[in-house]
Design a protein around this nucleic acid. Sequence first.
RNA 1: GGGGGCGUGGUGUAGCUGGCCUAACACGCGGCCCUGUCAAGGCCGAGAUCGCGGGUCCGAAUCCCGUCGCUCCCGCCA
Length: 593
Amino acid sequence: MEASMYKTIRCGDVRAGDIGKEVTLAGWVDRWRDHGGVIFLDIRDRWGVVQVTANPELAAAAHETAARLRNEFVVQIRGIVRRRPAGMENPNLATGEVEVESREVEVLNAALTPPFNINEESPVDENVRLKYRYLDLRRERLQKNLVLRHKITKFMRDYLDPLGFIEVETPILFKTTPEGARDYLVPSRVHPGCFYALPQSPQQLKQLLMVAGVERYFQIARCFRDEDQRGDRQPEFTQLDLEMSFVHRDDVLDIIEGLFTELIPAVAPHKKIQQTPFPRLTWTDAMNRYGIDKPDLRFGMELCDASGVFAKSEFKVFQEALKSGGVIKCISVPGCAAYSRKDVDDLMAFAREQGGQGLATVAYTGEGVKGSVAKFVAAGEAAALKQLTGAADGDLILLVADTIMTANKVLGALRLLFRDRLNLADKNKISLVWILDFPMFHWNEEEKRWEAEHHAFTMPKEADLPKIDTDPGSMLSDAYDLVINGTELGSGSIRIHRADIQHKVFERIGLSEEEIRGRFGHLLEAFEYGAPPHGGMAPGIDRLAMVLADEPNIREVIAFPKNQQALDVMADAPSPADPRQLKELHIRLLDER
RNA sequence: GGGGGCGUGGUGUAGCUGGCCUAACACGCGGCCCUGUCAAGGCCGAGAUCGCGGGUCCGAAUCCCGUCGCUCCCGCCA
């Protein structure tokens, strides 16, 4: 019931209890219907729509003004709340029992005809929507998404405060990080040739806050990464950044799990969390069973290792794969045994896109075993495969013979393809799963060096520390991911809090003494002054909102997003800089365009 | 960097095996009519040369080549 200078009641709040009252409304014309005599106006504000009547016999001037109104005009209306005549109520409207009989209608601002309809959810070319983002945001869909985001961040703050967390802001102008994504750079005017970097995350800063004795920190933090866009990636995005001191892994997991277990029903009651406590998978299990480190557990179709079944296979491709240390893995696709040659060819093309060599199929039809490798499959093998996968007649087995990495990747991608094609995942289910025990390092073949799988601040498993010089590839770390419906919601880890271990890890990933000192001197020094053991996590708020709002795209949950080319088409950013500005910044442009 | 899809009035689509397209339909827009509608209704009307450039052809929105833009995916995203 917020009153203001312009309105005594919100449009969406007018109810039967207000009948007889004089009210003043202000809002936008959502629709208007001129019946020759009486004119009906639907006036909209953020809280809803209310019908206003303009009757020439009751208020001639108001009626005259009402006749000139068009969609999206901004108006202020003084009138009396009336019960609608019997039979004229509109049950689709929260305000449908009543209407406002206008006495005065004032145009606060006229409006051009909008480039698309504000009052309905018709599809519109996204470029047009982005150009007129302020109009798109006026529509119900994005209004709802803005409110959802607000509820999410408000819930997070309210949840964490009583647990002793404090929100601390960290700088946007910071320092470039080696490894990781490309940085956005900001040139310094005062220091020619020097640049700030926008943080890819407040990682180092929150660790320094732990050294500072904050113990429990969080921030609704903006992060910047200059990489190519995806449906779930923007150059700038928001995380719930969180860090705790004196914790083991499970302390962090418990806090985060408690937060989401309560948050989701509170802000998205129609969504049901599939399983609490959240299931926990090791990274190795996730890869073996789902072929991916962010499995969607809303459906089965797990990967099976059929290497044993085909150990003595006559099929050359299978023989070769096994001989060279590879595997034969498969998934069973329900009800697709009747796939045509073309259907299967399309799947093969898809498998190749994912990096596979090809795809073999075995179809259990009513008339026996069919499929691309049917003639190489012995009866015993067919039966064993059927038992291994649990396939029924009518199912199609997709087999990949390759390195374990590639087989997992291809089948994991196929599993998701069929999730969407066969509608295997319930929209209103939320599968949240922890992925634990990630490898500490992976080998970068191109650069011929070890890289941190999670990031360089992650604590290796204590027991694996001795292997850092001898066998880094087999080391596990105390890193963890939280996965929601097959999307990485966030990741975190227990951090290194000792300068000697941190230094060792930097060395392992190929940083020189000079680089270590130049880039991380402050951190290593800080660790020498009593750094507590600590760890944390950073769930992505945009991705969470996207899933909870059933949006297919991250742009739908960001007020002013950039398009795939990282352009803001509304403001036309980025744009060329004024030569004077460039000069001040000591920047000369190369002659490319 | 690579691959797929799309690009027709303000918006969404149809047309796209070339000629009947002087480009259709819906919404929106403008005018007129109508005192109870609420996706109001009726009548009338304006509005696109089919992303751009080139080519084939007697003839192209429709075929070919190039190019630009948007989008999805791979690479990339510690």
